[in-house]
Amino acid sequence: MASDLGLWSVPLAMIAGAIRVSTPFIFVSVGECLTERSGRINLGLEGTMIMGAMSGYGVALVSGSPWLGVLVAAGVGMLLGALHAAICQLPRVNDVATGIGMMLFGTGLAFFLGKPLIQPKAPNLGAIDFGWWSSIPQIHQALQVNYLFIIGVVLAFAMAWALKNTRWGLIVRLAGESVDAALAIGASVARTRLIATSIGGAFAGVGGAFLSLYYPGSWNEGLSSGQGLMAVALVIFARWEPVRCLWASLLFGAAGAISPALQSVGVTQGYYLFSAAPYVLTLALMIATCSPERSLRGAPAELGAVK
């Protein structure tokens, strides 16, 4: 029976929450990690994510295939990323300001085009049932894992490997650390950043499609409510490492599940405080890991530099 687990159901619910809630964070932060490693910052991912959610939902609705929706969301994200990169390539353009502009543009466009999508119901991306062996409903529910979550985890490790071990990863890191060095080996910094930003945008688009096509699984205007922005902050928190982005996203998802999980087992006092847990956690870890002696460890040297 459900209540037999008692307080053990709280950590279980947090794991379940981590798996359910973290996927968009994983995609956006791993993508942004790549973008920032190339020396470009894209704050517009919140808008990209919402555009991805809207376009993915619309395409899934019309075509009946949620996976086609995910693909289109990635394409739309890629276009928005490329647009951001193209604007930032112009002389004396600040990429932070451009990013905020892109965020407002993406959000506004998605709300405008998404009007007719609020009512209809699009097909849902399914989940894999890893909990078939258990008769405990909580475990069963916690182990309903969506394919995109698995893809996200694999991508985080693949990205870390590629950045470290491939020639292409080396060029991306060079573009982020020292433009002169990149030029010296004959790599095009502009092209590298264009590609890195486009891929980052595509990832964010997929993260948005997860929101509208799996969890919570419908299109509405409050869908993202700042998750894209938080994911960008997670990259700094994760010190520009894709695998750490994965852990940070999972931690964030679990922290977000604390408040409903505690309330559902009857710990009802102070839920406002528990709702703030993810942000308190971020602040605490930032304070614990910062140092007055050096600047942020792992930050790409060219990040945010204006030509």
């Binding site: 379940a16 809630v21 909580q138 929101l211 409510s225 977000g256 309330q263 559902s264």
Partner: peptide, 26 residues
């Protein structure tokens, strides 16, 4: 009746999370 307060009027992810954690409790 188990009640879960989400904290605001329109928080889709929290609402889904609240519903799921109550379903897990039976």
């Amino acid at each position: 009746t188990q009640v879960i307060f989400t904290g605001d009027w329109a928080l889709p992810v929290k609402e889904a999370e609240a519903t799921n954690s109550m379903i897990a409790q039976g």
